[in-house]
């Protein structure tokens, strides 16, 4: 079984986000990036399948800031092959998905497992778009994958903790929300070793020829604190004030 896991770096939301001078995107110069948390789950689910029944796992990413590090980390965790797709400049998810589809088309694959979504994504979740460019079916919001022969059992989460079970044939694209297990941890030393030993293959994106079709008019911060009355002071002061509020409202 061949599993492809597209991974992507996203801005770390713990850091302050600033808007660029055009007012249309983040100021990316000082952004701290980290792996999209759902990609960590997608990779984990792929590695679980590999542990259970053997699989060849390929981590693939579009070229971008800090991406080598993320690919090497995937290798350190157990990915067998690393691919970097070059020649995509734009930020449109349609273009990214088309580039990814062009390269994946030339690979052998049974499952393509992306993260379910990313925080910076305005024009669509890649799994669905990628699946349609590849001409294969897809399921999003997946919380568990099991393989028996050529049949794949997929758990998809609805609201309220309800789960729908589907049975599907390969090839299949999945947007992974959560792996069955907590994603494995890999020590930095092992990533460093992978960055010496593992090889990143570069492949060209090819003809993109798709258009997201919409344009960004502006980016802005939502009204912060619009709702909340902020309570200042030390933790002690704040706690006293909260007690006052709770007493006033008859809660305590």
């Amino acid at each position: 079984m061949n599993i492809i896991v597209p991974i992507k770096q996203v801005p770390d939301l713990v850091e302050e986000l600033e808007i660029n001078s055009a007012g249309t995107d983040l100021d990316r110069e000082w952004l701290k990036m980290k792996l999209n948390e759902f990609d960590d789950h997608a990779l984990e689910e792929a590695l679980l399948l590999k542990d259970e029944q053997g699989a060849n796992v390929t981590a693939i990413a579009l070229d971008g800031d800090d991406i080598d590090k993320a690919l090497f980390a995937a290798a350190a965790k157990g990915a067998d092959r690393l691919i970097k797709v070059t020649g995509v400049a734009g930020t449109s998810t349609h273009e990214a998905a088309k580039a990814m589809a062009n390269v994946i088309q030339g690979l052998e694959y049974d499952l393509v497992m992306t993260g379910v979504q990313a925080v910076d994504d305005r024009d669509g979740q890649m799994a669905v778009l990628l699946a349609h460019y590849l001409g294969i079916p897809h399921v999003s919001v997946v919380t568990g994958v099991q393989v028996a022969g050529s049949s794949v059992t997929v758990h998809k989460e609805y609201g309220g903790g309800m789960v729908a079970e589907f049975e599907a044939a390969t090839p299949l694209a999945l947007g992974i929300q959560a792996a069955r297990e907590t994603p494995r941890y890999v020590p930095v030393a092992k990533v460093r070793r992978a960055s010496r030993d593992a090889n990143i293959e570069e492949m060209a994106a090819g003809d993109l020829g798709v258009d997201a079709g919409s344009t960004v008019a502006k980016m802005y911060k939502p009204e912060t604190g619009a709702g909340a009355e902020m309570i200042d002071g030390s933790a002690e002061d704040q706690a006293s004030k909260i007690i006052e509020i709770l007493t006033q409202k008859g809660i305590k």
Partner: peptide
């Protein structure tokens, strides 16, 4: 959960822009 399956597919199949979230 359901809409996240549908929106992107309809967008690609009909060559329409997709604006999410």
């Amino acid at each position: 959960s359901m809409g996240m399956d549908i929106a992107g597919g309809v967008s690609v199949a009909n060559n329409l822009p997709f604006i999410a979230y």
